[in-house]
């Protein structure tokens, strides 16, 4: 069970200090999560911290490859406007 940061990441550093397992590390071209360390914050926090502060929709995926913050969920921008 581990989360994944994908190429939408803007390297804003917000998630890295919050991770209770020190699973997030700086890398090129973007931050990554060490799948062996990630616990999805189970036992530490109710919500996975990286996905809770991440400002970029779609940048963090769950085990099934689904975005924890789907398009429009953070900015409130209607999806048809996002596509345009």
């Amino acid at each position: 069970m581990a989360l994944e940061i994908i190429e939408l990441c803007t390297n804003c550093w917000a998630c890295q200090p919050l991770c209770p397992s020190q699973a997030i590390f700086e890398a090129k071209p973007h931050f990554l999560i060490d799948a062996n360390k990630c616990t999805e914050c189970a036992g530490d926090f109710e919500d996975p911290q990286c996905a809770t502060i991440c400002p970029i929709e779609g940048a963090i995926l769950n085990e099934d490859g689904e975005p924890l913050n789907p398009p429009g969920s953070l900015t409130g921008i209607p999806t048809q406007k996002l596509a345009a």
Binding site: C12, A14, I56
Partner: peptide, 14 residues
Amino acid sequence: APACNIQCNYCNRK
């Protein structure tokens, strides 16, 4: 200071 703890409607964090 790249990280932010809020979202503003006039800001695009990208």
